[in-house]
């Protein structure tokens, strides 16, 4: 049997579809990382690149969150143990901050410094 002209067109079209799927799946999409804040009152998303101060109402009171210079930290919190404030600043997608007593959860999402090293030791 012989392949006919449109067979090659079909094969090429299918191969092109596969190639496009590969590009969309494996190309590192720039996409600026963003900050996702989850609280009892809802969920908010902010770009990590823009500096701003947030007041998020939790179950105990307002948690103050500061996004600045590409990192995010919890500035103050009404919680008793202040673990969230002590956690400091996070800046890489995948990192997060949580205040359990106040039920405020902050995480960074999006693609970015993938494949980077978390920590090094000598």
């Amino acid at each position: 049997m012989r392949l006919r002209p449109l067979d090659f067109v079909a094969l090429l079209a299918a191969a092109a579809a596969v190639a496009m799927a590969c590009v969309s799946a494996y190309s590192p999409k720039g996409g600026e990382p963003f900050v996702v804040v989850t609280a009892p009152g809802g969920e908010w998303i902010y770009p990590l690149g823009e500096d701003r101060e947030l007041e998020i109402e939790g179950s105990l009171g307002a948690t103050r969150i500061c996004i600045s210079g590409g990192s995010v930290r919890i500035e103050s919190s009404p919680c008793p143990n202040q673990t969230c404030v002590a956690a400091g600043a996070v800046s890489v997608p995948g990192q997060w901050l949580a205040c359990l007593p106040n039920e405020v959860f902050v995480r960074i999402e999006g693609r970015g410094a993938e494949g980077g090293v978390d920590a090094g030791s000598f």
């Binding site: 392949l3 006919r4 449109l6 090659f8 079909a10």
Partner: peptide
Amino acid sequence: AGGRLISAVGVSVLGAV
């Protein structure tokens, strides 16, 4: 639409994909 210009191979590939 393909008529004699397409065989079962082309039809099948288009369908599967």
